[in-house]
Amino acid sequence: MLSPETRMIIKSTAPVLEDHGVAITTRFYSRMFDEHPELLNIFNHANQAQGRQQTALAKTVYAAAVHIDNLEEIMPAVIQIAHKHVSLGVKPEHYPIVGAHLLIAMKEVLGDAATDEIIQAWSDAYGVIADAFISVERSMYQTTAEQENGWNYFKDFVVARKVKESDVITSFYLKPADGSNVPTYIPGQYISVRVSIPGEKYTMIRQYSLSQASKPDEFRISIKREADNDPNGIVSIYLHKQVDEGDRLEVSAPAGVFVLDASKSTPVAFISGGVGITPMMSMFETVATSTPERPTVFLHGARNRNQHAFDEDIKSFVNRMENASYSTVYSDEENGFITRAMLEEHVDPAGDAYVCGPVPFMVNMIRELRNIGMDDSRIHYEFFGPAMDLEELKSQ
């Protein structure tokens, strides 16, 4: 528990963190990686280079300051980040390292404004927040390891099949190298893939949504190949060009909170853009096979037909369902975007909507779903990249 005096100090520093948070987190990461370069085996280098991770951490620290009187308010964000940490293999011993360098960075950036009293208050607050993460993650690791066919950290898998789904998306079917089965997962979850790329000093980890309903013996991930000059594309290009059937990849157990509520029978809409279709496929297939009578809508936007993955698969599922519809739009064509009118025509605002795609797409879809009368509690979405302020995304 934090003392009233400590909480007061933390709240008083919130405006400063809002103004200087990114400068603090940028200095923090620089210091930490200088002294602990081994942590570069965990962190996404592209996100670091683009400043995305620094911004995400700054928002998290600021949110902690604002809600220090009631940290339960940020528990949904803690749980979401904890899932990402577990998929990356973050361990309890990493937290003291982070805390020490974060406090030093605060002092260096804020100078004399960061008094000993303020630094001590933040040290106490960080200890409470770190304990919350460690506790949540310990429980997740235990659950993951104890489930049937479960494991912690990374395990060797073999690429059993590699299937081209469109001009830019390829599916990788992964089976455990030891011949075992895989754990059951919730539709919408993801796995992490860790690779050692020739010429790169550190390993690289990326998260990929599981793109089919849970199967006993395999995972399927469907990966978009990014452009050669995209700093985010180094892993996807390597997987597309260098990894073949029979090769091995290190894989984490399934994680993630953007998941289908399969217990419901009320109307549901899946709304995706581009490679955001991947988590929708596991959700949609689950509905199609387990509750085919459920009123279901699938709306998808792609750049063009050649970049549209899973079209025939979705049509096949729709044909077996009792009350399902499927519509697509292509941005290269006239009027090729999902509009409010399209949502009004197809989506029941009394049901649930799952949204995934590029951030501008999600911002627009969330706004328009609200405009047609859907409550925020019924709008579920996934953001690709570092954790961000979900309330900020909602409000845009």
Rank of each mutant, 00 (worst) to 15 (best):
E18V: 11
A288I: 13
L174N: 06
Q120G: 01
I68R: 00
T328N: 12
A63D: 13
E293L: 07
E345K: 14
K264N: 13
A213Y: 06
I186V: 14
L343P: 03
Q53T: 14
D112G: 00
F383H: 08
A113K: 01
C356W: 04
T289M: 09
G256W: 02
G89S: 09
F28H: 02
R320V: 06
N232W: 07
K224Y: 04
H346E: 10
Q189G: 05
V128Q: 06
T291R: 12
A58I: 14
S139P: 01
S325K: 08
A14N: 06
I134N: 05
R303D: 14
D167W: 00
E392D: 13
S180K: 02
E117K: 00
Q50P: 08
F133V: 11
A160Y: 02
E344D: 03
A350N: 11
D124G: 01
I379G: 02
R248Y: 05
A160Q: 12
W151M: 09
S327G: 05
M362G: 07
V128G: 09
A114L: 03
M106Q: 01
S222I: 04
E382M: 03
P198L: 09
D156T: 12
I134Q: 10
A82N: 05
M204H: 07
N229H: 07
I134V: 11
A49E: 15
A125Y: 00
E18P: 00
S290N: 13
G274K: 08
Q48M: 15
S316F: 07
K394Y: 09
D228E: 14
H94D: 11
I74W: 10
N47R: 06
D167G: 12
P358C: 02
L40P: 00
S171Q: 08
G150Q: 07
L17F: 10
F284S: 13
P4I: 05
S211H: 05
E148K: 13
K59A: 14
A302K: 02
R248Q: 13
I372N: 03
P360Q: 06
I314T: 09
M8S: 03
H300F: 13
R305F: 08
Q50D: 15
D332V: 10
G385S: 10
Q53K: 04
E35A: 15
L40R: 08
D19E: 15
S290D: 14
H240K: 13
V98L: 06
N306L: 10
I372Y: 01
